[in-house]
Write a protein that binds this DNA or RNA. Structure first.
Lengths: 140, 140
DNA sequence: AACAAATATATAAAAAAAATATATTAGTAA
DNA sequence: TTACTAATATATTTTTTTTATATATTTGTT
């Protein structure tokens, strides 16, 4: 039940983009430095984020990455599921065919409830909320 | 954010023990067969379950495994944390020292909330409840 | 005393996660 | 239009974790 670096790094990346929202594209290279993530690794994580429609890019000189939508419209749940897939703790919820007992399985129902709770929690937080929270915390 | 086989197998194992509660010890060998889990692998999972005080054993002829407490007093959360460790999705919640930014980290606070929700959900379900649910489902 | 089964430890195999390297494509601005 | 910069795509390697197996030992029962 642990989050992998894919989810963790992507979240930090997206927060960084949110901080610079509407200030032009940012280079991956810069985010790598400030967040101490390998450039090559981050450039892999960025692909599913783009496919999910969370970020946009502009190429060429003065290019870079930026949010596809304002920070208040991007949920943490979208970021995590984009790079890690479903939040359900077991495969059979999303792919019932992989387990024959799937139909009347108690544990499956419970795991599904857990997955739903996770999704709800992460859906509550948008990038904007997270930045505001951050300010509150460091302001203290 | 996936559960490993450790958690899944252990849960099935514990449900099996609950079904035979108060009917004497059960052999690991039998549970392996009915649940289709490797004997050697299961005998590893059984160790943390015993350390956590969830099961007891009797050795020698006619020995085997049985629940340390009645099914209504054993929570699913206890089973999972015994074999998988903390439900928190990131290490830094349980071991703040591994990350220097741990003190004022927004995401940490959010991951902690997720972990708490998981714990709450799994704490709600006892082995007894799960068996009852099972009956309802298959009875239909 | 012989047997049956739990316990412990070590090791191996397989799978997944994390990271790196290389080559290609595309857009910008001079 | 050319040179540059950076995104994109693909392949490969390394590392870590998970899963599984094997062997030896201890303990208790009949």
């Amino acid at each position: 039940m642990k989050l992998s670096t894919r989810g963790r790094y992507s979240t930090r990346f997206m927060i960084e983009l949110a901080l610079y929202y509407n200030k032009g594209p940012i280079l991956l290279k810069e985010i790598c430095k400030s967040q101490q993530i390998s450039l090559k690794y981050l450039s892999q994580l960025v692909i599913p984020l783009k496919i999910a429609g969370l970020i946009k890019t502009s190429r060429g000189a003065h290019g870079g990455y930026f949010l596809a939508r304002p920070p208040e419209e991007i949920k943490l749940s979208e970021i995590i599921t984009a790079v890690e897939g479903s939040l359900n703790p077991v495969e059979c919820i999303d792919n019932p065919e992989i387990c024959e007992r799937s139909d009347n399985c108690v544990t499956k129902a419970i795991w599904a409830e857990v997955g739903k709770k996770c999704l709800e929690t992460l859906s509550f937080y948008t990038l904007k909320k997270m930045i505001e929270l951050q300010k509150e915390m460091s302001g203290k």
